[in-house]
Simulated assay, not measured.
Amino acid sequence: MATFSEEVKMTLVSTKMEFPEIELYGAIKGKGDFVIDGYRKYIKITVNSLSSMKRIYKLSKLLFGDYISAYVKMERRLRLGRVGEILLDLPSVEKIVGRENIDIYSSTLPKKIKNDPFLFGVFLKGMFLTTGSVSFKSSYHLEFFLDISEEFADDIVETFYNLLGIKSNYIIKNNKVKLYIKSSRDILNVLEVMDSHESVEKLNDIIKVRELKGNVTRTINFLTANAMKTAESSSKQINDILLIQEKIGLDNLDKNLKQIAEHRLENEDQSLKEMAEDLNIKKSTLYSRIKKIKEIAKDLEQGDKE
């Protein structure tokens, strides 16, 4: 069964190829390495998703024609399964990506991408295909594991917030940048801007179900706590009334207090709100009379101790 991350990548394969140079640039920033073979220079893009392999191969074919080579190899030692690699002629990459005024060697995000939500989404799509993942087992988590400078990471974090209002952060792990987003709503926005609409619908349904379950659990906990509080309060009131009954008898109470005491003994499980409704008195009046009963019981108890 495909993971949710793989499902997202599968949906991205069939999306429109708008600004393929920028999408390829995102893929290169995600998992691109420089390779020298004699006098030839290449950029090697490595992926461990066949869906990503298909998409990046299509992009490369569109942009470079026959100036690419692609293959799939097995990496059992690393437990990665199938790993796809695409080799692109470096001078051709510099020329074609440069048509969008993008310098692949720059340690900052191009201004045109930083200032345009659509282009930023295209860039993120390429980056997600090579190094992105989403999980929601215990908590919501989207991340990119990148071999970029901290300066470039800061640029991406700033762009996420300025363009989309998304809060992201990163840590350095094994000399690489692990850039992550934890808010479920922010993750939905990232999937949306990457054009993965099917994934948005699926994740949104999961979020709604979890929120509903959470609300039910909170309601049950609230009702349980209230029931326990009512039972505890009722128990204290009954103890006070029984003490009065034993020491002086309920007939020696004021008629209003006697009415409250007898009603409580007959209705142990009632809340104070229900008692007030049954007795047709205000809650504040009921509270005041119960307080007087408590004070009488306290005086009787202290009298026994003296």
Rank of each mutant, 00 (worst) to 15 (best):
R185G: 01
I187L: 04
I187H: 01
I187V: 04
N189I: 05
V190D: 02
L191Q: 01
L191P: 04
M194W: 03
M194S: 02
D195W: 07
S199M: 01
S199Y: 02
S199V: 03
V200I: 05
E201W: 10
K202Q: 07
K202F: 06
K202T: 06
N204V: 02
D205N: 10
I206L: 09
I206W: 07
I206G: 03
I206P: 04
I207K: 04
K208H: 01
K208P: 00
V209I: 10
V209N: 06
V209S: 08
R210T: 01
R210P: 01
E211T: 13
L212N: 12
L212P: 08
K213N: 09
K213T: 12
G214K: 15
N215Q: 15
N215F: 11
V216G: 01
T217W: 14
R218H: 15
I220W: 06
I220P: 00
N221M: 14
N221H: 13
L223R: 12
L223M: 11
L223D: 09
L223S: 07
T224G: 07
T224L: 10
T224H: 09
T224E: 14
A225R: 15
A225N: 12
A225K: 15
A227W: 06
A227E: 11
M228N: 02
M228W: 02
M228D: 03
K229S: 12
K229D: 08
K229F: 11
T230I: 11
T230F: 03
A231D: 07
E232R: 14
S233Y: 08
S234W: 10
S234H: 10
S234R: 14
S235E: 08
Q237L: 05
D240W: 09
L242E: 10
E246D: 10
E246G: 07
K247I: 15
I248M: 13
I248L: 06
L250W: 13
L250N: 10
L250A: 03
N252Q: 14
L253R: 13
L253T: 14
L253N: 13
L253W: 14
K255D: 09
K255I: 13
K255V: 13
L257D: 00
L257K: 02
L257N: 02
L257T: 01
L257Y: 01
I260F: 01
I260D: 03
A261C: 03
A261Y: 09
E262F: 02
H263E: 07
R264Q: 06
L265Y: 09
